[in-house]
Structure formats: structure tokens, C-alpha cells
Write a protein that binds this DNA or RNA. Structure first.
Lengths: 234, 234
DNA sequence: CGTGTGATTGACGCCTGTCAACGTCTGTGG
DNA sequence: CCACAGACGTTGACAGGCGTCAATCACACG
């Protein structure tokens, strides 16, 4: 009875329907259920830290994790967020390298730890699974390369608008039509790659232009089309 | 006799010693040799184009290929270069997606075309190979994420210095100690993510500071330590 | 109520992109 | 052999986006 939240089998895990483990055999699900280890993580806790060796990957049951790199003067650059159904840390596990990012919980989460040996075993013995995982890595690679182009060519204003659209598309809205995900101004700045003050100024400009409604940390997109235009998205 | 340059088997291909195919069985090498298709490509020719479907990957025997995305107003953002022993286009093949970059020859090259079916077959049937390929994708992912951090946090001056060091480390020097790879100012700008004029000005500043020697397109690094310091590298 | 974190606003100036003009080099065709 | 076109490199002028610094406000928490 080692799997705390209801010793749930991954086979009918509540997280994302088509998750990365969809092509496992019943036996492999069994194995995964035995090997994994699900635990709650509080907001603010570090799942793994850049530069450390990690002994396995984590599958997100719920909550939100921010994945970032630490750059000049300790300024963090947010690479992506992981949520329900996502798997994190597999890059370092499969390459057998030190973690090149830090994973920090920003909304209370339940994570299932999957030992490296289990993951590698599945990768080597199930071609469907390995292809799925490969495709995931390739998808992330494509996204990262697209973001390089963005950040290299677009202005801060364009990038911020784009990030807001992106956050809406990826995390959705709450009951009041506000962005579901709640970030500090500094975190927004660390996605966009700019100063906190610039984010603040631009957000209030967007508000003046009637594109946003702001209530503290909560953000509502009023003019999606205008925002996309500002972002140079088509 | 379909493989033009000496119907060479990949098994003893002259390209990079530990290349991606190092873990194939003799039978698999045989299969690869039968399926592949090696052709010369002239400087300036396009190997594949962003947005098109590609029917296979390419292994670089020699020459240099520039991989870039087209951004705002057609401005190109160079993501990476491929040289001897590198494999390109595998991302789109394995994800079964459209090419998200363009590959253009900048130094006359010989490329071996590997049909998608062959690559996928090898991936599914040889766990060592699939792990190698996965590690390659993960390595590229790590590099892309590192570059996001750089480009988001460093100044143009720092990035240019870093790119020069990077080009030296990856392509080496010619007999006169100049960088082996020859790029236009515009291409340098499209790596760094800046304007051509800025690259020109910064290069001559670096020259004034005694860190570089410039002869047209040829660049010699005189003060590697100073350049690294300028780049904020340790 | 003090402390700390996050948000906001203003002032200031440098880095860097844009525009324009001109120089240089190479290859082509007359 | 020369003229010309076109690509590439260089330089200067200029403005404005955006980062930095500093002060102040808002809010939560022990």
C-alpha cells in the first residue's frame, strides 16, 4: 500500500486522457504501479534542482510545476510549465545527465515518481512507448526552437501578448473567465525574458487599450483578437 | 551501385567516429546501405524547407548545413549547423510532422538520404539505437533551452562573443588559425538574433580591443579568455 | 504592529534597431 | 578588357524600447 493517494494504477489515472503511458501493456502498467511512488508536493517545494543527478522522472497527477533555468545573476528563465498528465525530468534520466533545469511547484501538486530503471526498461522494451516518448521530446524541441525565434526577433510587448494567449490556451480559464494559472509579475517577466517593471507597464498599457482586465494577480483577456495582433500571431 | 560516393557502407563511413548509427547490427547496416541514397549538394541548395513534409532524414558525410526558422518579415533565425556525422530532419520524421525548419547548404556537402520507413524501422527494432537517438534529441533540447536563457538574458555583445567561442569549439580552426566556418555578417546576426549592423560594429570593437583579427569574412580569435569574459562564460 | 514580499510609478540613459549613403568585391556579359 | 549589376560590408545619424535604480504603496502573516 505504498502509493499514497488511493494506490491508483496508472492505467486509469485521472490525469490527461492520452498520456504518455497510453501504449503500455497491462503487465507494464502493473510494473509501473508497483515501482512508482506518489506523493503530495506543497507550493514552493523543489522537485529537482539544476545540476543535481535525478534518479527518476515525475508524472504530474495534478498541480502546476514551473521548469526553469538559472541564468546570469541567478535570474531565472522559465522554460515551460508542467500540469496534469505531463511527465518531467525524463530528459536527464534518459540521457543520464545532470538535471539542466529546476522544477518548482507553483500550485500544490501530486507527483508520481518513476525510477530511472523503470523508465529505461519501458523505453527499451516497448517500441510504441519509446516512440511516444521520442515524439514528446521532439515536440518540446520544436517548441523550444520556435521560442528561440520569437525571443530573438520579437519585442517584449509582442512576446508578453503572445505569452498571455499561450497561458490561456494551455491552462484555460476559471469560472470568472480569468486565466486559470496565477503568476507573479516577476514570473511573467521570467517567461518573457524581461524586467518585472516592463511587464507591469505593458500589462497596464494592455489594460488601457481595453485588451485586459486586471485584478491583482488575476488576468482576464477581453480582446483576444487585439492581443493576438499585438503578438504578431496569425 | 546507387550510392554515388563509393557505395560506402555506413559501417565504415568516414564521418564522425561515434556517430548515431554506431549500435546497428551488421544486418541493419546492410539494410541502411541498401535503402540510403547519397548525393552531392551545392552551396546554396535547400535540403528541405520549413512547412513541407519530408520523406526521410539526412546524414551529413561532409560539408555544412545551416538549419533555420523563418520569423517575422522573413528574417531567418539560425537554430544550429550540421556537419560531418550529424543527422538532420529526424525530428519531423519521427514525429510525423511537417518540417519546422529549413536546411540550406552553406558549404558543398554530401548527404545520405535515409527513408522515413527505414529510420522508424530501426528505431522500433533496435533499442540501443532508439536510446541513442533519444539522447541526441534530448541533447538538442538541452542546448535549445540553454540558448533561450542566453538570448533572453544576455546582451547582444555577450551573445556575439559566445557565438564566436561556440563556432570555434564546434568547427575548429583552419591552418592559419582562423575559424574554419565562414559566415556572412548577416548569418552571424541571424544566430545572435540582432541586426547585421550591430554585428559589424561589435566585431570591430572586439578587434579594437585586441580580441579578434578580421580579414573579410575570416575571423581569428586572438584573446580567447577575454572573449569568454565578454560572453560571461566561465 | 513590524516585517517581508510583491506591485507600481517615475526618472534616466544606454543599448540596439532602423534608415540611408557609400565603399568593396566578384562574376557576368558586351 | 572594361562596365555594370548585385551581394556584401561599413559607417554615421537618430530615436525609442527597455533595463536599472529608487521610492512608495499594497497586502499578508506571525
Amino acid at each position: 500500500m505504498k502509493n499514497s493517494p488511493g494506490k491508483s494504477s496508472c492505467e486509469n489515472c485521472s490525469s490527461k486522457f492520452n498520456n504518455i503511458f497510453r501504449n503500455l501493456s497491462p503487465e507494464e502498467y502493473e510494473m509501473l504501479a508497483l515501482d512508482k511512488n506518489c506523493d503530495p508536493y506543497k507550493r514552493g517545494s523543489i522537485v529537482y534542482h539544476e545540476g543535481n543527478r535525478i534518479s527518476g522522472s515525475y508524472c504530474v497527477q495534478n498541480g502546476i510545476i514551473k521548469i526553469y533555468k538559472t541564468g546570469i545573476d541567478g535570474k531565472e528563465q522559465i522554460i515551460t510549465f508542467a500540469q496534469k498528465g505531463d511527465i518531467i525530468g525524463f530528459r536527464s534520466v534518459l540521457s543520464n545527465e545532470l538535471a539542466c533545469t529546476t522544477a518548482k511547484v507553483i500550485e500544490d501538486a501530486n507527483l508520481c515518481f518513476i525510477p530511472a530503471t523503470t523508465l529505461v526498461h519501458l523505453f527499451k522494451n516497448n517500441a510504441e512507448f519509446s516512440l511516444d516518448l521520442m515524439q514528446l521530446a521532439c515536440k518540446e524541441l520544436g517548441e523550444s526552437n520556435a521560442y528561440i525565434t520569437d525571443i530573438a526577433q520579437k519585442t517584449v510587448r509582442e512576446r508578453l501578448a503572445e505569452v498571455l494567449i499561450h497561458l490561456r490556451d494551455n491552462f484555460g480559464l476559471d469560472n470568472d473567465q480569468f486565466l486559470q494559472i496565477s503568476l507573479t509579475r516577476e514570473e511573467l517577466a521570467n517567461i518573457v525574458g524581461t524586467a518585472t517593471e516592463s511587464v507591469i507597464r505593458l500589462l497596464s498599457e494592455f489594460k488601457s487599450d481595453g485588451m485586459l482586465e486586471l485584478h491583482g494577480r488575476r488576468i482576464k483577456i477581453l480582446d483576444s483578437k487585439g492581443l493576438k495582433k499585438t503578438a504578431n500571431l496569425f
